[in-house]
Design a protein around this nucleic acid. Sequence first.
DNA 1: TTTCAACACGAAAACGTTTGCGTACCCCAA
DNA 2: TTGGGGTACGCAAACGTTTTCGTGTTGAAA
Lengths: 350, 350
Amino acid sequence: MKRKITLKQIAKELDVSISTVSKALRNSIEISEDTRQKVQAFAKLYNYRPNNIALSLKNRKTKTIGIIIPEIVHYFFSTVITGIELVANKRGYNVIVGLSNESFDKEVINMQMLANGSIDGFILSIAKETLQQQDYHHFTETINQGMPIVMFDRVVNEIPCDKVIVDDIKGAKKAVEKLVSGGCKNIAIITTKDYVSVGKLRTQGYLEALEDYKMEAKASLILKIEDKLLSNHHLDELESEIEQLFKSNKSIDGIFAVNELYAVTAIKVARKLGLEIPKSLQVVSFTDGVLSKHSTPSLTTVSQHGQEIGEKAADLLINRLEIEEEDEEAEEIYETVVIETNLIERESTK
Amino acid sequence: MKRKITLKQIAKELDVSISTVSKALRNSIEISEDTRQKVQAFAKLYNYRPNNIALSLKNRKTKTIGIIIPEIVHYFFSTVITGIELVANKRGYNVIVGLSNESFDKEVINMQMLANGSIDGFILSIAKETLQQQDYHHFTETINQGMPIVMFDRVVNEIPCDKVIVDDIKGAKKAVEKLVSGGCKNIAIITTKDYVSVGKLRTQGYLEALEDYKMEAKASLILKIEDKLLSNHHLDELESEIEQLFKSNKSIDGIFAVNELYAVTAIKVARKLGLEIPKSLQVVSFTDGVLSKHSTPSLTTVSQHGQEIGEKAADLLINRLEIEEEDEEAEEIYETVVIETNLIERESTK
DNA sequence: TTTCAACACGAAAACGTTTGCGTACCCCAA
DNA sequence: TTGGGGTACGCAAACGTTTTCGTGTTGAAA
């Protein structure tokens, strides 16, 4: 078991100085052709690679991006990571992942672990608990320490940083428009409580769309689900809440669900109640994930293009890192990029 | 924008030496109570945290684990990551993720990027292409350099390292047994080509189970899908292959699918052909993911406990790292942990 | 023979830590 | 006054790089 070889060892072996070895390997003209060849051959033989940690320390940058997301077993978030990893790798960066599990404390701890030199910048989506408590000091602090952040999807405006978001309002409007144009007269929404920013925005889009079409927005058609019900253990509760919705509003002929799970659950309940999809009930969901594509009937859905979001976020962050490099007092103008959604029509609508 | 503060700056500010500051912060008795208080107060005020990179360089360990997986938009792999991250965090480690995209080259590149000091050890699942080419030199090389590897799920025996696997054979047998006990007489399997180790093993389990029950294994009931068809673009081809299976074997009354997608697609095709689930066709799949839980009918499935696999893998790796630490010539006895599967019964079987 | 440039290389600092060891100072006892 | 033992601190090395600057040797021009 031979440990990784270092410049020092090569130098000793070849009886030259460390600096000579370093320069030879980087093809410096300071070093004679002879020595260069000798050193390079030796280095190749022993498979020398510069130690990343040493380089990081010297260059005061790690070429590593920190990602903090609420969870990873989640179609949208994992597509975003895919996108981040793609451009990060292409541009010579690594990706280190921390999970907040939607918890404020874990988010803070994770950021502290990484902010002490391990990474050059963050890409993150805020935990629900943080959103609820509205305590964002950990974000401002890291930014103040000169570490850039790019937020995506779940963002908050008061933090000065680049952001990549989906136009949730517009996406929701597209969904509702699809239902309207399919002939729906009584469109219900199944959404989250308002502190989840994307839920709130999608609800707003729903309301705006109704208004556009001069349709009345009835409170009884708006079902706001408590967050916990997203976990698998509370599936029954979720089902009964939705069942309640249908039972007390017999005329519902369209459902806009703000995520896939709500959508498939709604369909399941609706079927149980004897409704036919899409004939007597049409459904549109948000997030074009596994369920939308492969459940039966497949779901008409608003696609968020998670990978694109990730790619854009990574580009924004790396751009900022690399412009800071040359221009110490870089412009502090932050960008908010909106990734367009699009409606993917499948079997759950006419 | 105040950059992160260092020992040197504190030392200068307080007019003491760097070593004094360092010792004071670590509560060394070498330092007077007075100085200690002073330094600690100052450090707290400026929110001092030791620079991780410097520590890594000094200690020659990074407290970071590298994960290489084929893809992340995948229920099983993301649950494994969740497990890894959980115990890694608990034990003071970070997690850095590389994706191979099932490509040999990307796997090699990713490992090289990380093996140069960025991490202390790997947890990985082998890319399909690597499995196909059977070129494992990058694994043996990193191991030879003293960097431990833990493999999970897709492993290969000839590599000397710890492994965490699912008993695919046994899991497959459980699945088939369930179908048999549900009265199925003609059980087909939808699996992958043999170079995917888990596909091969599950096929083997299927065959063994049939033998146990003295049922004839017919080649026509074994559908081996070419890998590409797993991607969304080839869904049609997948469907038509499965349709072919049903059409040329009208008597099929049970399907064992080695993953969720094959299972839901089989159900979709079966329905189109007028079969009722589970009355005239029962289905069992592998991997207890989103589709199994939420599609209609929900799927009876063999659960792999991905999170547990991740937790175990992380524990194995960290244990090895920390025993190596005290005992340079650590025992080179490698462990293969088998995580039991269990059958989760839902609506797709009787 | 002297001078000077070109060439080829080495010394050392720096990145931010930790830690073994040396040492200046003080106080007390002899 | 001398000696000795604490006490409280600083020096310097080490981790593995890169890079600036200095320097010894050579050969040729003057």
